[in-house]
Amino acid sequence: MRFISRYRRHRFAGPFLLLAGLLFVGISYTVAQAASESAVLNTSDKATLIAEGKEIFARGCSSCHGLNAEGAGIAPSLIGVGAASVDFQVATGRMPMADMSHQAMRKEPVYNEEETAALAAYVASLAPGPAAVTNEELAWERSGDTAEGGELFRNNCAMCHNFAGQGGALTQGKYAPTVMGVEPKHIYEAMLTGPQAMPVFSDSVLTPQEKLSIIKWIKHAENEPALGGAALGRVGPVTEGLLAWTLGLGLLIGVAVWLTTKAR
């Protein structure tokens, strides 16, 4: 007690107490939440999975998508979007959305694998839709064709996602995200379901085999070494021009100034 009474008027006592208080609240909140969440899931029976999904949906999604996933003014109906769509949106962290301004962006997923599967099962149970892809369907390493995938990518994807898959701008703050470092499963599901501004590439427009080829090409591009030196984000003339005009011209101006100053 002497210790406390000695330091209680110290000038750092206030900030220290504030920090300690915040830390305590944060930790206890995390612990409490983890306990309640982990209590939900422990079985994989289909009916219970759907029931669990429904519960998670009611807690985390229904405020925007409606209690029965019927949609509302701010969020679309999820009836018939299928498990593939849910898996893509939730497992890449796009849903639940952090802010509603332009588009949902990729972030750390909020729900773990089991919870995502439960949500997907629930939404799929509302109406038939594209199913989440299984790993057997995703034999891109075996059945994909890199060259064909490149041609397909340039024809179908490159206009938005950039010729090297780095992503690009769309209208009014929207953008096509980079496809580098995306799970093959999520690439496949995105083509199948057309999330957000992206159009749908159905299985007759791009056959499953062609989708695998695109994935193989993307994975090939991902591991493509930068042989020409600094890749500058692989977006072409924008960064290259910026560097040439600022660094290059700046250097030339500096040299010109030095050339014309008289030696003392």
Binding site: N155, N156, G194, P199, S202
Partner: peptide
């Protein structure tokens, strides 16, 4: 490949 109307979903595109 020739396309039928049913090959395109609403929201879908084809080049």
């Amino acid at each position: 490949r020739p396309l039928k109307p049913s090959d395109l979903e609403v929201g879908g595109v084809a080049q």
